[in-house]
């Protein structure tokens, strides 16, 4: 069966094709990606079922826009990787709750003292400007907009840093984007050493 035939059958809701495609052909791929990003939180059947729901959403829109410039296998693999990565980040990183990251990780850890020690070790390895962002926004709970003046002073002192931001709004955007990226990196490193699972 060609990729076009499989897609056509999926779109018309052919049960046999749906079962074979998701629970035979794609099963090892979906389990690998699903369990890589969402470790031990779901059974293989749940992961596959969830991805089926996602892909079939909006009347199989993602398959309907497929132009067959790559194989169906690769197309679905990229979609699955992005989907489960997004799902993990959404579960681990509640945006707009700056302090929540620390609290979530802390609740899951075995001891607060060890947690703070490990967190500080990672923070110490950050660039000075990134360390400042983490300390003030994540740890102290300040809003990005309230630390802009300090951030500007720090940036002016650091020859390695530069930004095209000309207005305060643009600079605030730069700070917030940079902070979010640092926070995600910090989160990944903490998870890698055993916190937050």
């Amino acid at each position: 069966m060609t990729d076009q035939q499989i897609v056509s059958n999926l779109i018309i809701g052919d049960h046999r094709t749906i079962k074979d495609f998701f629970f035979v052909r794609c099963k090892p791929m979906l389990i690998y990606i699903g369990q890589y990003f969402c470790q031990q939180k779901h059974t293989p059947e749940e992961l596959i079922g969830e991805f089926y729901e996602f892909l079939s959403d909006d009347n199989w829109h993602k398959l309907r826009i497929f132009k067959y410039t790559c194989s169906l296998n690769s197309y679905v693999t990229i979609i699955a990787s992005r989907y489960f990565l997004h799902k993990r980040d959404k579960e681990l990183l509640p945006l707009d709750e700056n302090i929540a990251l620390v609290k979530n990780l802390q609740n899951d850890s075995n001891g607060e003292a060890f947690f703070m020690e490990d967190l500080n070790k990672i923070i110490r390895r950050l660039q000075p400007f990134d360390r400042f962002l983490v300390q003030r926004i994540l740890i102290d709970g300040e809003k990005p907009g309230d630390i802009l003046d300090e951030a500007k002073v720090l940036m002016a002192k650091d020859e390695n840093l530069s930004t095209d931001a000309k207005t305060d709004t643009q600079f605030a955007g730069y700070v917030y984007t940079r902070y979010n990226r640092v926070r995600k990196g910090l989160q990944k490193q903490m998870v890698a050493i055993g916190y937050g699972k």
Binding site: V24, R25, C26, K27, P28, M29, Y32, I33, Y36, F37, N73, S74, T77, I78, A80, S81, R82, L85
Partner: peptide
Amino acid sequence: ECFMVALRATTLFN
């Protein structure tokens, strides 16, 4: 991360 996980997973199709 997204791309490398997908790359490894492409070998797993049944």
